[in-house]
Design a protein around this nucleic acid. Sequence first.
DNA 1: TTAGGGTTATGC
DNA 2: GCATAACCCTAA
Length: 569
Amino acid sequence: MDDDFKAAAILEFILRQPIEDWLANELFLAIPVSSPLSPCLTKTILIRRLASELSFRSVSERSLHSLELLNDLHHSNDHSDSLRAAYCAVAVECTACFLRSRPADDYGEFFDAVNRIWNCRVTDLESAEEAAGLVSDGLKRARKEMEEAVVDSRVRDALKRRDTKKEALEAVRVYLKEESAKMGPAFLELVAEAIRGSRSSGVDPPSVELKEKGGGSLAKGGISGIKLNPLTLPEVMKVKEGLRASCMGLQTVVRDPLPDAVALAAEVSTAVPVEMGNSKRNADHVLSSVEEGDEDEDDDGEALTRRKKDTEIASRPNVVARYATRAQIAEGKQKIGNNRRTTSTEDAGANSSGSDSRDSIEINKNDDVVRDPLPDAVEMVVSEEEEVMMMMIDTGHVNDNEMVSRPNVENPNATHVQVSKGKGKIGDLGGTTSKDDAIANSSGSGSKDNNEATKKKRSIMDWNPTARAYEWEEDSDSSSSESQSLTRKPHLPSSKKGVVSPLKVQGNRNLVGRRKKLRWTTVEEDTLRKAVEKYGKGNWKLIKSCHPDIFEDRTEVDLKDKWRNMTKP
DNA sequence: TTAGGGTTATGC
DNA sequence: GCATAACCCTAA
């Protein structure tokens, strides 16, 4: 285990506390954790983000995105009904909201939403095997209803009369409650519990009070866990500094993660002015408890002696595995031997099959702890540093005054906390629609990302509207290494595509300034034919946007011209 | 954004 | 040279 492990444990603990988002954000920014984040921490961040939105009675397309990422973190055989229901309800609300927010005869935004969410997003889900967990009969029915609503005003009216927002909020609430219960206490809480267990004989128990699994409040982003006293501002500063010191000061890399984590808990307990009990006093004792499955890694006599002192904690199944980052997983695999080429599924299976040398990465399916997600899903969720960093906090719900007054003890001039509306805030999304988000993000990604601040951590609550399964190839003209590194993000077709195609078209121009003739392929023709059947003649832009890959080098006019040719007598 | 007329390139 | 497909221009 290394410092990153400690930082992840602290962050997970923090993010599950009922503290304000700005504070969680501050702490996230202050605690050095490298990416890729562990699946567990990623999941915690996403859950926190959803909970925060829920507390503000808000659902948006970024909620959809969060749910998609959470689905990716689910085990392939562990798809949750409540997740499916929440996804469907949020998708419906994200569409139907445009019926309520616009004049009675203005359906443009609604049609766009149907196209964006149901014709593109949900269609992709249905075709993507890894996202099958989100697809339900309800989602299919809803999709049909939305498609009918485009052409049938009665269906539209019925949809408008439904309180889809309430349905979505309730569905998300149910999912969060269920997921929080599944996740159980934070790692540090488990450690605290272990400490208390280890001191049960004649020693004052710590004042840590563990709630029943999943019993925590969701208010203000809190999920579950230790009861905390409200922190005053000076205490907050102390927490932050203490946590930072804890993370930065611990340079010794100990092979065995559990005692190290316990030591960390002890340190945190001294740094955090909340009731963490006598963890420090217990630390020496608990430090002596070591899992026995790692002897080849830490084989000194002292460690061996310690290992035998506390079998209870030693037998705790794989709590540490929750924090294995991809790097740690890779390291673990290397221990096994890297001569086996595995598929993603094989990796998942291997990680759960159990081996002493893999204890640090093994996921115990019976532990109700976060399972090892499909590596491919992890790849998508946590492989991109920016992707995960952009998840970091800032719900966009905090009012401006609060944002402005947020203290930055680290650096009062630091840009990453200049979060006042419209200025310096990374991905300022407060109160914007998802469409606005996409526009803002696509238009600002270049210059803003060059900002030094954006190279640092970003808020977990920041919505990355471009963070979808799409990932376009880089433009040939984006040659600088800096821009390449900064633009390695997935993009929605609506933003980047619109920029790329004309450039490519220009590149195809001949000396006369006319594009080279590009003959239509059979695939293009078939797609166009089917698309016209589906969407009708004349909806060339819609058709193009629904098949951005196939019609990558075609304009809407091209589609129209081609159809004209195809239907000539 | 689309429709329709006009222009150009390509294959026979 | 002609037919056709692909592309361009412009009005609505």
